[in-house]
Design a protein around this nucleic acid. Structure first.
Lengths: 349, 349
DNA sequence: AAGTTCAAGTCAACCGGTTTCCTCAGACGG
DNA sequence: CCGTCTGAGGAAACCGGTTGACTTGAACTT
């Protein structure tokens, strides 16, 4: 029954604690430029607690203080990669006393709207942007109205506010695995060109393929979707030779959806996974274990990417200078059944 | 260059249009209790446009008006079902001049926090709740502080504010399909007990199985996940008889993830989909087409569920009385390759 | 001609916080 | 004994909107 039917306000807390609004505000915001007796401090906290006081975010924002809210813009919510990042961001936000709002930014379609709704209307203090790409409308808006913001996963060249993972390393990990199984002709299904993690992964793939001395390392681009992966896979697997062997014996894809599309494409050519073609995908999401066959992946620190991005953004909001950050956790190989040694040359008909 | 570096405020618009703040506010909010000359009205709109004016949501909320924001609470964002609902909600919100915020409510874990952050701190005008279940902490909080809210998909008995789909019909559609293929023993993988769409689907399944005179219609429950579907499938498929035939020749699952788990379980018993066991899943999400084999589904109007929920909630916020709503679009069978006629009795070894 | 009505806006209080500048009492130094 | 300093907290302005009461000039009645 200590529950009030109506919201408790700052004055209510002040009255109950026997002090003024000003004092309550200062105490609850933990300002150290202030002298209050421990006893008073205690009374204030007690009153706030008892009344279940929650500051009105609008009033706070109006008074020139922080809204204690961030927004995360992701390009596609049906891509579990972003959901994982979002979870990390949400959790870390909480820990830092911020609320993180999630918005889908269909590759720029909604960017301006979201920007207006969230930033211009003063709902958030900063932006986590996972949907950046060259020419994105948001980039212009951000220059006009310089809200604190960081770029997550997809970086923006020269912005000095990118929070990313070691994606180059993921290509190396994937290739090393396939190489150690005996594969010498490996194809890579990249994401759309121009998107940084995609480009970086591709360059690292080509470089390391050279270092390993692979006999073939073709690359095809496609959307991060099943269809994108499917058509890219067909590009890489054709033409099959007289014995029915495709030009590569393994595929390394940029997303899980692409891996699914690639596996379907492989089957459509009458080939099997992994007997004829091995497949390894990026990002170890729960579904990977439930595909047929279960997919070998390179696990990326997505959750951690989310937390790191929030750390950087909150620091920026609180006045620290921004700089590029790469989360330290290394990509990790998760072995399942979609990769195996290649059929011996001239082997099974 | 019409871009101002600083936010335009109401006074700025008023000044530019040569009227008072009050007039601008009334004009922009389209209040009809007001007399303004069309000419004045035009000038106001023009000025607002030119300055790129956006009302500060906090100021607005503080002044006792609406924040023009809603929140959607979903139990799991990695379930694309909810993402689809969220998209419908988001889109419809926009059309109605609201912003819809998405929050993950891990089956009640985060409910109180979210409630505090969003409702108590005055960030939103209403709640769309897709994560309801009996005993959910939110239900108590909602009674204490009666914010406008509706329950989406998962209904709350007697609340008179449920927005749902015709899930009973989806069971009928699925069963009719399997029956027409010749299946007479069909198992159903239900969701966790106590969650309404799950219970309703199950009851409809049993009723219609009776109407069709099926020889067997066992039900097993499991989480909406792959693992949940997998273990439920094993329950239903065991024991296999001397010929290796399981007790049912088809499975109808409550979620796509369950269907994936079920297909893996079927294979683990050395059986094939659809030759030995057919599988049909609920909700036609894009991935369904890319599974192996492509999954036959019952398409539910998820997007529309999202839009209908927003319609109901906004109506409630604007003062209309609430009532239960069922979206009119009927479940639709989407035929793919995971369903086929059962093997003839005593057929393939 | 004076009173009434109405259209077209304006005034100013208010929402719930934050922050700057003050006050006030007691301690302390000279 | 008086001036000053300092610790502890208060008064009030302000943020940017909304809203109901109020003003004003013109037209319309009687």
């Amino acid at each position: 029954m200590s529950e009030q039917p109506v919201r408790a306000r700052l004055v209510d807390v002040a009255e109950r604690a026997g002090v003024s609004k000003a004092t309550v505000s200062k105490v609850l915001n933990g300002r150290q430029d202030l002298n209050v007796r421990p006893e008073t401090r205690r009374r204030v906290h007690e009153a706030a607690e008892a009344l279940g006081y929650r500051p009105h975010s609008g009033a706070r924002a109006l008074a020139g203080a922080s809204t204690h809210a961030l927004a995360l813009l992701v390009p596609a919510l049906d891509n579990p990669t972003y959901v994982t990042i979002a979870r990390g961001a949400y959790q870390r936000s909480r820990e830092l006393g911020y609320l993180s709002l999630l918005a889908e930014d269909f590759d720029g379609q909604e960017a301006d709207e979201s920007f207006n709704d969230l930033v211009q209307e003063g709902r958030v203090d900063g932006l986590l942007i996972a949907s950046a790409r060259p020419g994105h409308p948001l980039l212009k808006a951000l220059r006009a109205s310089p809200v604190p913001h960081v770029f997550v996963n997809r970086s923006v060249e020269g912005s000095e506010r990118n929070v990313t993972m070691d994606v180059a390393r993921s290509s190396v990990t994937a290739l090393d695995h396939l190489h150690s199984l005996g594969h010498r002709a490996v194809g890579h299904i990249a994401g759309p060109p121009g998107i940084t993690p995609s480009d970086t992964r591709k360059e690292a793939f080509l470089r390391h393929a050279g270092e390993l001395g692979l006999s073939a390392a073709p690359v095809a681009s496609g959307d991060f979707t099943e269809d994108g992966g499917g058509s890219a896979a067909l590009e890489l697997l054709r033409p099959v030779d007289a014995d029915g062997h495709p030009p590569v014996t393994a595929l390394y894809t940029s997303s899980l959806a692409q891996a699914m599309g690639a596996m379907a494409a492989i089957r459509s050519l009458g080939l099997r996974v992994p007997e004829d073609v091995s497949v390894i995908g990026n990002d170890d999401l729960p579904v990977a274990a439930h595909l047929h066959p279960p997919l070998t992946t390179v696990a990326m620190p997505l959750y951690e990417l989310g937390t790191a991005a929030v750390d950087a953004l909150v620091a920026a909001i609180e006045g620290a200078p921004l700089r590029d950050v790469v989360v330290p956790t290394e990509p990790r190989l998760v072995l399942r059944s979609s990769t195996a040694g290649p059929a011996e040359p001239g082997g099974t008909p």
